[in-house]
Design a protein around this nucleic acid. Structure first.
Length: 396
RNA sequence: GGAGGGGUGGGUGAGUGGCUAAUACCAACAGACUGUAAAUCUGUCGCCUGAAAUGGCUUCGCAGGUUCGAAUCCUGCCCCCUCCA
């Protein structure tokens, strides 16, 4: 049911194009998955997601279990039906929240980890919730996503070796327990669901390789690479993937968790990644930052007050076809919610278009052309942001 | 006509003798954001000099005064608001 087929490879890198078949449709890879943590990609609806080119989206079992609760989603026919998205969905287990919620509170009151699982203090009402590998799997199976993630402990950048080692070891133990539970439950499940394991190991080559071997050995339908090193740091992202690429299974999807800057897309794809997700484009959009061929555009800047041009002349999205920068500027300045939606539509369309171009290039064996024109991040962070990957191949 | 309240930096509005170039919020300007506790967060925000610590200058309706020292106290003037007639 969850076949994964590689249909083209780039001769100059590890990049590959494939088809990931799920019960809710096929995902043409490489693919970017927009994030809809609470069964909603903020500000846009399922139809807009389709229009923008999304194939598969992400949601989060931790958030959904708090609200509206898995019983509710289950009763209403599962997450696809619940949110009106009849395409593939992946849920994260809540492993990321082990890290993101714990860093919010120095006293560590919101998250407590032990070898058996994680105890959360709900960020909504303070109630205490317990997540173990088994319950994480159960919750996700009941929510009904096509792909579910093992419970893991996300290692922060700069974590010392001992800490990274312990987190990885725990992640491995949990992954085994998730697999056992998943295998057990799949037998009597009407709709198959795929479990992905997650590689941790922090910033250490040997730990990353150890983690990759361990997780790959579980023989799950897919493998993910996690940790703060992935996404948050461009150099660490590339480095980490290079460390482990030869150990990743070639016959199943590989998923880099938290990659959302278009500049990172080619970097991870060339290192053999098929799937990636991030809140980046949607969050940037809500904060008034638009991704364009010319780089990042801050729509609230005075410069756009009476700029009649579309956000990106090379973009075909609804936003770029219908409104001007001046109008978007006005919407953001006046706090009109339509601005968030239009900006989100554009950022998603832009990101998905970039990935589609890369995918096409791999398929026709011309990734080299794209690579040659790909923006090279400089040492200066500020300058990077003025860079963007053109949507049109006008320079050819 | 009588009684009372008030005028503070772009706006709202604290402050009622030195710790005040002046709280806070908004606006403005700039930056951040990568498996979402985010329509969030951070910085700047009188003028001049400076890379910066800083230094200098001018500010709390206007004009005087008291004081070592005033946005804060006193006097006069101008303006605004509320209530009563």
């Amino acid at each position: 049911m969850f076949e994964f087929e590689v249909i083209a490879r780039d001769p100059g890198s590890r990049a590959r194009a494939g088809r990931f078949v799920t019960p809710h449709g096929v995902v043409e890879t490489p693919a970017f998955m927009p994030v809809g943590t609470r069964a909603a990609v903020k500000t846009v609806d399922p139809q807009e997601l389709e229009e923008v080119g999304a194939q598969m989206i992400l949601s989060n079992a931790y958030h959904l279990s708090l609200q509206p609760g898995v019983e509710c989603i289950e009763r209403l026919g599962g997450i696809h039906r619940f949110m009106g998205w009849n395409h593939p969905i992946l849920t994260d287990s809540g492993g990321f929240q082990v890290w993101s919620l714990s860093t919010r509170d120095a006293a560590g009151r919101m998250v407590r980890i032990d070898d058996d699982g994680v105890t959360f203090r709900s960020h909504l009402d303070g109630s205490v919730r317990r997540l173990t590998p088994e319950t994480a799997v159960d919750l996700q199976l009941r929510i009904g996503a096509d792909v579910i993630m093992a419970l893991d402990e996300c290692t922060p950048i700069g974590a010392p070796a001992e800490q990274a080692q312990l987190a990885a070891a725990r992640t491995h133990q949990w992954a085994r327990r998730c697999r056992d539970r998943w295998l057990e439950r799949q037998q009597d499940s009407p709709v198959p669901q795929a479990l992905f394991g997650i590689v941790q190991g922090g910033d250490f080559r040997d730990l990353r390789r150890w983690s990759t071997e361990t997780i790959a050995a579980l023989d799950l339908p897919g493998i993910a690479i996690g940790g703060q090193s992935i996404g948050y740091s461009k150099t660490k992202t590339a480095e980490t993937l290079e460390w482990i690429e030869d150990l990743l299974p070639t016959d199943r999807p590989r998923y880099a968790m938290g990659i959302g800057d278009p500049l990172d897309f080619l970097i991870v794809i060339e290192r053999g990644i098929d799937l990636f997700d991030s809140v980046y484009p949607t969050r940037l959009a809500r904060n008034g930052a638009l991704l364009t061929s010319e780089g990042r555009l801050r729509i609230t800047a005075v410069a756009y007050r009476s700029d009649e041009r579309p956000v990106d002349a090379a973009c075909q999205c609804t936003t770029c076809r219908t409104v001007s920068r001046a109008y978007l500027h006005h919407l953001f300045r006046s706090g009109e919610l339509a601005g968030h939606r239009l900006a989100t539509i554009h950022n998603l369309a832009y990101c998905l278009k970039i990935v589609a171009r890369i995918r096409e290039a791999i398929r026709v064996g011309r990734l080299e052309d794209l690579r040659a024109r790909w923006p090279r991040p400089s040492a200066t962070q500020g300058e990077d942001q003025r860079m963007g990957m053109p949507l049109a191949s006008s320079s050819q």
